[in-house]
Lab assay of single mutants.
Amino acid sequence: TTYKLIANGKTLKGETTTEAVDAETAERVFKEYAKKNGVDGEWTYDDATKTFTVTE
């Protein structure tokens, strides 16, 4: 399944996707990606669109 991340960070803005077996796995991947890019904010997830959003 393809999951999408929308990053609304102070230093990183944009979108990326990952293939994962479930939302929990995708969330781990995206949180690691955000951490590597210095983004720390509020996370939301929309199951209907398989989209995570992080906003600083």
Rank of each mutant, 00 (worst) to 15 (best):
G38S: 06
F30Q: 00
T53H: 08
A34C: 14
A20D: 02
G38R: 06
N37A: 12
T16Y: 15
A7R: 04
D46F: 04
L12P: 04
F52V: 01
T51F: 02
A23S: 09
E42M: 13
E15D: 06
N37E: 06
T1L: 10
D47R: 07
A20Y: 02
N8S: 10
K10F: 11
D47C: 07
A34M: 10
T53Y: 14
E24C: 13
R28E: 07
T11L: 11
L12G: 09
E24P: 09
K13P: 09
A34Q: 02
Y3F: 11
D22I: 03
F52E: 00
V21G: 09
T49N: 07
G9E: 04
V54W: 03
G9A: 13
G38K: 07
I6T: 05
E56W: 11
L5Y: 03
G9M: 12
K35T: 10
V54F: 12
N37Y: 14
T11H: 14
E56G: 06
T51Y: 02
T2W: 13
V29R: 09
T17Y: 15
K13Q: 12
W43I: 03
W43N: 00
T55N: 09
W43F: 04
T44Q: 09
G14S: 13
A34G: 03
K10T: 13
G9T: 15
V21Q: 12
A48I: 10
T44H: 12
A23Q: 12
K36H: 10
K13S: 11
E27G: 08
K50H: 11
N8F: 14
V29Y: 15
K4R: 12
V39C: 10
A26T: 00
T11S: 13
T17Q: 09
G41R: 01
D22V: 02
K50N: 07
T2H: 08
T25E: 14
V39A: 04
L12M: 13
Y33A: 03
N37D: 03
K10N: 11
G41S: 02
A20H: 03
T1E: 11
K13I: 11
K4T: 14
I6Q: 06
F52K: 00
E15I: 15
Y45D: 00
T17M: 10
I6S: 04
L5N: 01
A7H: 13
A20T: 05
A26W: 01
G14D: 08
A23K: 15
T2L: 14
T1W: 11
A26E: 00
T55D: 07
W43Y: 02
L5F: 09
D47T: 08
K35D: 07
V29F: 15
V39P: 02
K13E: 08
K10E: 09
K35G: 06
E15F: 12
T18H: 07
A26L: 01
R28A: 12
V54T: 02
E24H: 10
T11N: 13
L5E: 01
F30V: 01
K50D: 02
V54G: 00
T53L: 06
D46T: 05
E15W: 14
Y45A: 00
K31C: 05
E19L: 14
A26G: 01
T44D: 08
V39G: 03
T2E: 08
V54S: 01
D40V: 14
D22M: 03
R28I: 10
D47H: 09
A48K: 12
V29I: 15
K31F: 05
A26I: 02
L5W: 04
Y45P: 00
L5D: 02
I6F: 06
D46R: 03
A20L: 02
Y45T: 00
T49Y: 04
K10H: 13
L5H: 01
E24T: 11
Y45W: 03
L12N: 06
L12T: 07
I6A: 05
V39Y: 09
A7D: 04
K36V: 12
W43E: 00
K10I: 14
I6L: 07
V54Q: 01
K36P: 01
E19R: 13
A20P: 02
F30I: 01
N37S: 07
Y3C: 02
K4L: 08
T11M: 11
L12W: 15
T53R: 07
D47Y: 08
T17H: 10
G14E: 10
D46I: 04
D47W: 08
T53P: 00
L5Q: 01
T44F: 11
A48G: 09
R28L: 10
K35I: 10
T17P: 02
Y33V: 06
A48F: 11
E32A: 12
K36E: 12
T51D: 01
A7W: 15
G14R: 13
T55R: 06
K35R: 13
K35A: 13
V21M: 13
Y33P: 00
A26Q: 01
G9P: 04
T17D: 05
T51C: 06
T11K: 12
V54C: 05
F52P: 00
